[in-house]
Design a protein around this nucleic acid. Structure first.
Lengths: 227, 227
DNA sequence: TTCATAGTTCATTGTATAATGAACTAAGTA
DNA sequence: TACTTAGTTCATTATACAATGAACTATGAA
């Protein structure tokens, strides 16, 4: 098979309406049962099963059996990033009509993108990290400066340890609301984890939206001159 | 329309086999005619036209009319980025297969286009002029920066004089081999004349091809960091 | 002029594949 | 044990939309 056909295979797979909705729902990184996903996409369980089988075969999803339930989740962070970046192609006019909706304000301001922080806040923090010379953008990645190693160690994040992990360390992820890059990879995950554990931000229930606590505002301002 | 439906709209658009092949072909950043794209995708011209209209409407492509041809290209770098990132999801990728380019013969490498320089060299020079901030692309034209005025005056080219002429000063011309823009207009003519007069390049007899002299190579490298 | 080529539009046909119903396995429950 | 729920498989149906032919505009060339 030629490369463009392989690309077409992936594109077709993502292109079905029902599958697109399911994948979008899975963007929070959580695992959902087949029945839950069928409700999301508003199709029969049989049909859902068929779609899920295809997504599994393409290694876009992974499945975990637990009793009589099967929990489906995105195979890895890369899948999530591709889906989010595809959303950045939604025509400007349509994006505007979405982000001005009151209920989507929080999701566009700050949300999780699978395992790291996205939205306006995600981009702002990344910008600040670059401005403070903590990280530096190189091609599609970021490198951490000597100063940055120190900065992250204050958050109990050990750069050397993270680099040892198999997964990507610190790469760029395209944000669909901001149309700009933000920090992803194991470093992005570590930062998100720290912020949640230390109550800088809180996840909203049943949503990818997060909100910044007053402590978080203070810390981000002190450490990154963010606000 | 909800966000997941809009995502589905984009995904569906990219998901058609024929469209996927066309988009993949356009990844090189060059512009192609509708007929050429129909050959790439191996479908009829009518069908191609239909697909292109959809991609245009979604602002994934832009079109430029030139005579009876319509040149289609990706709307911006983001589109290319997303397509490439989607290709990264191809399972057990054998993406290492290199995309072969048609080898450039002298007629495609450098040739005159009516009264200015075209071909790969023409495009390269134009790119370098932009990169060095000597000229700046604005819509279908180029403007010359203050730095640029100085740069051209070193070649005895007086920008103010050229602007007084009735004909177009510096517009974009689409190259058929490179499918990318290069400098045309009175400024393009003046530059070509200078290069010939000063033996940077020589016209081949009975041909539009030109060859670059060793002096030309040196000068273009010194002044534009071209090679 | 007239002809050829590039490209589009529109109505019709064709087809790939999604959705569905019925029948099934497998796990949990009363 | 029988019964319910989760999920799948398979054969059939339905449908969205891609492909096509015919007719059209527009540019360029003889």
């Amino acid at each position: 098979m030629e490369i463009e056909n392989k690309f077409g295979y992936i594109a077709t797979l993502l292109g079905d309406k029902a599958r697109a909705i399911m994948l979008w729902s899975l963007l929070d990184g959580k695992a959902y049962t087949a029945t839950e996903l069928s409700i999301c996409a508003n199709i029969s369980r049989q049909s859902t099963s068929n779609h899920l089988a295809k997504l599994l075969e393409a290694q876009l999803l992974i499945v975990e059996k637990q009793g009589r339930h099967r929990y489906y989740r995105l195979a890895n962070a890369r899948v999530a990033q591709v889906i989010e970046s595809m959303a950045s192609l939604i025509p400007d006019a349509q994006i505007k009509s979405i982000i001005t909706k009151p209920k989507s304000q929080s999701i566009t301001y700050a949300r999780t993108c699978y395992d790291h922080l996205a939205g306006e806040l995600g981009v702002k923090i990344t910008d600040a990290l670059v401005k403070q010379k903590i990280i530096e953008p190189i091609y599609n990645k970021y490198i951490v400066s000597a100063l940055g190693v120190k900065w992250f160690s204050n958050l109990d994040i050990n750069i050397d340890e993270l680099k040892l992990k198999k997964r990507s360390f610190a790469h760029k992820c395209l944000d669909w609301t901001e149309r700009r890059h933000h920090l992803a990879g194991s470093l992005g995950t570590a930062l998100l984890e720290y912020m949640i554990c230390n109550d800088w931000i809180r996840k909203k229930k049943n949503s990818r939206a997060v909100l910044v606590t007053s402590l978080g505002t203070k810390e981000l301002n002190d450490r990154l001159k963010l606000f």
